[in-house]
Nucleic acid binder design. Structure first.
Length: 360
RNA sequence: GCAGGGUUAGUGAAGCGGUCAAACACGUCAGACUGUAAAUCUGAUGGCUUAUGCCUUCGCAGGUUCGAAUCCUGCACCCUGCA
């Protein structure tokens, strides 16, 4: 497999580079907004693009349930379907092993989930996940992994989940190759493996080394930001920093609090995704300069004529939407409020990424 | 005018002699949210407060009772029938 990631500069732990996908190049470090069901919630693709976003995520599990990958394929694939023209990364459904743990059953073959909406059983296997992601038309395909929680039950199966994740990775690679065999190289999606290991450094090292020894275009760190303390997460990122294969892209999954985002970039991470900017935004919570959080629903903004962050260049701030206006729209449940705040929060992370990219 | 029904905390609405500072919903205030079961969830919401504590409340004014939001009397206002 040729190398789709080009490392350009390195300043301490900060790397800048370019990830080449069939849908376009991605400058790293990069923040990737999450559009689980094919849309970044509340935003038109043009608005997402205007935040500086280069790539968005979709989710195998959700899109498989509704409307189904066959429908999306028939309607031209994810790009045509969603009208997002840039690269798309799809998560494999592995995270749902964790988030829907109490409604799922894991076996060596795969995982059976109960659809939380109607109780329907959905089975996902490494092969199935690859097939779905290929049908969706994803540009970066993620391995199907076994994510564990940090509670007692999860900790006890950390080792088991890690080994299973590795066996599943081999199955994913075989299936991915089978499905992409007849594609020209520049038409193939990329494939990323995922390292697990919970908060156990030995297991983390073992997992990272295993994943990097496989035929993958990028290596992802999974299973963090699932409830551990900030210190635990940062310790692990510091520990992993010298262990990465420098020729591959490094993706930290699910992290996007500005503080963690900066920390990860300084410790060798190239890509991150997170629901935090959009979820928080819909709940009225936004970041401003200095990564300070404020809740726009708060009474104290009622008469505030300032924009969210006077130093911000996002469309929401540039267009002059005041805190007072946003507070009002939140209070009356107008969805515009969440959209405007999402634009701001995504831009906030993209500005951070740009700050580090400008080092090159 | 006659006969019924009603008036409960910011709003709607339970309660119909003690376990009532008073269910529930909404609203309000605050908090949480990290590969989205998430436009969701949690807490507070008469006052004072550390409180299993005290004080003031259930249209208004009296009364019965050991004890009343709950029963009685009068008054005010609202609704529905009949005139």
């Amino acid at each position: 497999m040729s190398n789709f990631f080009q490392l350009e500069t390195k300043h301490g732990g900060v790397r800048t580079g370019t990830l080449k996908t069939r849908a376009g190049d991605i400058k790293t470090p990069v923040f990737m907004p999450v559009g689980t069901r094919g849309a970044v919630k509340g935003l038109h693709p043009d608005q997402v693009k205007a935040t500086g976003a280069q790539i968005i995520l979709g989710n195998t599990y959700h899109l498989h349930l509704m409307p189904g990958e066959k429908v999306i394929k028939k309607l031209g694939g994810l790009h045509e379907f969603t009208r997002w023209q840039g690269p798309i990364l799809t998560d494999s459904g592995g995270f749902q092993v964790f988030s829907l743990a109490h409604m799922s059953k894991i076996t060596e073959e795969g995982v059976t989930f109960k659809d939380p909406r109607n109780g329907d059983l959905v089975t996902l296997t490494p092969e199935k996940s690859m097939q779905i992601q290929i049908d969706l038309g994803s540009d970066i395909i993620m391995a199907f992994d076994d994510v564990v929680s940090l509670d007692q039950v999860g900790r006890e199966r950390t080792m088991e989940a890690l080994e299973r994740t590795h066996r599943w990775l081999e199955r994913c690679i075989l299936e991915f190759k089978r499905l992409t065999n007849d594609m020209k190289e520049d038409e193939q999606p990329l494939f990323f493996g995922i390292a697990q290991g919970g908060l156990d450094k030995k297991l983390r090292k073992k997992s990272l080394e295993f994943v990097q020894s496989c035929d993958v275009d990028g290596v992802a760190i999974g299973g963090l930001s699932v409830g551990e303390t900030r210190k635990e997460m940062h310790d692990m990122l510091e520990f992993l920093e010298p262990l990465y294969d420098l020729t591959k892209a490094h993706y930290l999954m699910g992290v996007g609090d500005p503080i963690d985002f900066r920390f990860a970039i300084k410790h060798g991470i190239d890509m991150m995704d997170c629901v935090l900017p959009t979820r928080n935004a819909r709940h009225g919570s936004v970041w401003s300069s200095g990564d300070i959080r404020m809740n726009l629903k708060s009474e104290r903004f009622t008469n505030d004529s300032k924009v969210i962050d006077p130093e911000c260049d996002c469309a929401t701030c540039i267009d002059g939407f005041t805190r007072g206006f946003l507070r009002h729209q939140f209070k009356v449940n107008e969805s515009l409020a969440g959209s405007l705040a999402s634009i701001h929060n995504i831009r906030h992370l993209n500005r951070i990424a740009e700050e580090y990219r400008s080092l090159s």
